[in-house]
Design a protein around this nucleic acid. Sequence first.
DNA 1: CATTGGACCTGACCGC
DNA 2: TGCGGTCAGGTCCAAT
Length: 279
Amino acid sequence: MLTGAVMPELPEVETIRRDLDAHIVGRRISRADVLDASLVQAPAVDVFSRRLIGGRVRTVGRRGKYLRVQVAESWMVMHLMMSGRIYLQPASERVRHTRLVITFDRGPALHFVDTRRFGRAWLLSVSELDDLMADMGMEPLEDGFDGPKLHELLRDRQRAIKPTLLDQTIVAGIGNIYADESLWLARIHPATPAGSLSRRKLDDLAAAIGTALRTAIAHGGTSFRTFADARGRPGRNQERLNVFRRTGEPCPRCGRIVKRIVIGQRSTHICPGCQRIHR
DNA sequence: CATTGGACCTGACCGC
DNA sequence: TGCGGTCAGGTCCAAT
């Protein structure tokens, strides 16, 4: 059993959440081995492990790109950042770059594997969890995320729409892939000032974000690379991407050649035919 | 306030 | 084969 041969934006984290929900809820933690202390943000590593052991997993949730596992009365929070992965496999099967292994009373262990070591974990009380999540923006898959809501969130903002979508305090969970895909779907140039988008374009954008995220979840997320030693199921959504990392290929809608530009220091992929700067 | 640039890490890949 | 440069799905912090 393996989950997480995918890279983490909202759909990938949601895919992992569903796997964990199906496989670790109700299990009791028997070991918690932190192999890289820099992963654990709070509390101290020894307290983190000690407090987990003996606890039973109650729920597995997600907020934006954060995974939240309720263990007894505490919340174990994980953020995978750029290269984090979660594997469910026997505790003894350690791949390279394993940072944390949580072993249960039965079934596979949870492995947090992270090449670049940007990923983080916390074990928090309810109020500490609330503090950590305090600045998070709206969940784009929740009811009420629509054009009028985007209008409310984006009006008066001069910043380009793409970095605005990546700002987790406005909308939570969109990353570089789904920002590009959503803007392409809505035919919006990523450099368009957010506050200048018409009501109609904002309707399109809200719908496009929902479509991009839901499609990706339905296909198990996006994976760009599989590892020689990784077994299991990579995501399949990369086959459905329209512009992201498709530089030089034809736009599926109009046939113009997809171009890579840089906006806000991030790689950005657009169709120069479909996505023009205006309102 | 908003915006920009650098830092944090490791590895893959490309051209020479 | 080796070396240097570039790139990578994210976030935080300091400087402007």
